[in-house]
């Protein structure tokens, strides 16, 4: 239905996650009608971001600088390393204000179905970092999905021989949650990992 430059634009927009045919057409029409400067500004921001953002060569996070702000920050606890799946997850952990160590971004979780093995989760880079910097505690802040679980098992088994303490996120009741509305699996986990009141 759309051809030429407009058709090309629609095709490119459709490749974005969550964008179907209809949305792509609406976005394309929006971009080319009205204030054309807005669209050019958008194009410029995309270009700038793509050209200037790379993976940090130490922790693999998407960053404008290499090393990234976290790796360059000497005030951070050097011996704590928090492993996350994506760069976005770093900001989720940062927002807790509970953690002041460094990060490592895997980029993926192990998933043979999608052809993702140890090399695709950047394990060699992680291993390098642990060996060089003498990490005391490695916190695996990964989803408790089958893929996350397998990734946790894999990393833990690879580091068996080292003195690094490996921990993972707890699963259980949400803060301010009501046990009446908690599903039985979550409640079961919370019960299994109960902790002493005196701590």
């Amino acid at each position: 239905m759309f051809s030429g430059y407009l058709g090309e634009l629609v095709q490119q927009l459709k490749k974005l996650p969550g964008i179907g045919n209809k949305s792509a057409q609406r976005l394309a029409m929006h971009l080319i009608s009205g204030d054309k400067n807005k669209a050019l500004l958008l194009a410029e921001s995309i270009q700038n971001a793509v050209e200037n953002i790379t993976n940090c060569s130490i922790c693999n996070m998407l960053s404008e600088s290499d090393p990234c702000e976290f790796c360059a920050d000497t005030a951070r606890h050097k011996n704590f390393l928090c492993v996350v799946e994506n760069t976005q997850d770093i900001y989720l952990v940062e927002n807790t204000h509970e953690y002041h160590g460094r990060y490592f971004v895997l980029g993926n979780l192990l998933s043979p179905l999608d052809g993702i093995g140890p090399d695709e989760i950047n394990f060699p880079l992680l291993l390098d970092l642990i060996r060089k910097d003498g990490i005391e505690e490695l916190i695996l802040a990964l989803n408790p999905s089958a893929e996350g679980e397998s990734t946790i098992n894999y990393i833990a088994s690879q580091l068996e021989e080292t003195s690094t303490n490996i921990t993972r996120l707890s699963t259980g009741l949400p803060f301010g949650g009501d046990i009446e509305y908690t599903n039985s699996i979550t409640l079961g986990n919370a019960l299994k990992r109960r902790y002493s009141v005196n701590n």
Binding site: L110, P112, G117, P118, T151, I152, N153, Y154, S157, Q158
Partner: peptide
């Protein structure tokens, strides 16, 4: 082709 430790990470679960 797989790394035996990768297989074990699935076997355990």
């Amino acid at each position: 082709k797989f790394d035996p430790k990768e297989k074990r990470s699935w076997d355990e679960q």
